Simulated scan of single mutants.
Amino acid sequence: MSQMLACLVLLLFVALLGPLPTLAQRETRHEKFHRQHVAFPKTHSELDARRYCNLMMQRRGMTTIKCKPSNTFIHGHPTEVDAICSSGGTHFSENYYDSNGFFELTACRVTGEGSGPPNCNYRGRLSNQRIRVACINGVPVHFKAHL
């Protein structure tokens, strides 16, 4: 009887909690690519490149455990960036595709000047360039280079 009561209490407890996200839920490689590289419209465009990099690298979670050495933000619409893997790009080699068009970019590189996570210091550089990305299943998953 007490075992049956324990089961009922447990069942009631689970029912009241409802669906909870599991700890195992993680972002996909494509979602991570967007979090780390796509910033459209350009957030805080009034900031100089250094301040922009310091802010965005922290906001996007790339300074939590260690300072990510470098990162490039693409200021293009997410659908235009995704299209590099299809009509908006040209196959380069293996799973790499080059964008047909130019994107506004902010390239961030850690300076190494006496600070550590989460307050990493970056220098930034603005440019308009074509880019190369790695694609899997028709979507970008890795930023390879500016061209």
Score class of each variant (00 low, 15 high):
Pro118Tyr: 11
Ser2Ala: 11
Val9Pro: 00
Ile136Phe: 11
Ala6Trp: 02
Arg109Gly: 08
Glu113Tyr: 05
Phe13Cys: 12
Glu94Cys: 04
Leu17Met: 08
Leu47Cys: 05
Ala39Asn: 15
Leu10Asp: 07
Ile136Tyr: 12
Cys67Gln: 07
Leu147Asp: 11
Asp98Pro: 00
Ser93Ala: 14
His146Trp: 04
Met62Gln: 09
Arg130His: 15
Leu11Asp: 07
Pro78Ala: 02
Gly61Cys: 05
Gln25Tyr: 03
Ala24Ser: 15
Asn121Met: 06
Thr106Ala: 01
His44Pro: 00
Thr64Glu: 08
Ala6Glu: 09
Leu47His: 03
Ser115Tyr: 04
Val139Ser: 13
Tyr97Leu: 04
Pro78Ile: 00
Glu113Arg: 13
Ser93His: 14
Ala39Pro: 00
Glu46Gly: 02
Glu104Arg: 14
His142Glu: 12
Arg26Leu: 06
Ala15Arg: 09
Gly89Lys: 08
His77Glu: 05
Thr64Phe: 03
Phe102Leu: 14
Ala145Trp: 11
Ser70Ile: 02
Gly114Leu: 12
Ser99Leu: 11
Val133Gln: 09
Lys68Glu: 08
Thr64Asn: 06
Leu10Gly: 11
Leu5Asp: 03
His30Asn: 14
Ala49Asn: 08
Leu12Ile: 09
Gly116Trp: 10
Val110Gln: 14
Thr64His: 04
Glu104Asn: 14
Pro41Asp: 01
Arg29Cys: 04
Met62Pro: 06
Cys53Met: 01
Phe92Ile: 11
Met62Ser: 07
Asn54Glu: 09
Asn128Lys: 15
Thr79Glu: 00
Asn54Ala: 08
Tyr97Gln: 02
Gly18Thr: 06
Arg125Cys: 09
Ile131Met: 11
Ala83Arg: 10
Val141Thr: 15
Ser87Lys: 13
Thr90Cys: 06
Ile84Gly: 10
Leu5Asn: 03
Gly101Arg: 15
Tyr52Leu: 01
Arg109Met: 10
Gly76Pro: 06
Arg59Gly: 01
Phe103Thr: 10
Tyr52Cys: 00
His91Glu: 06
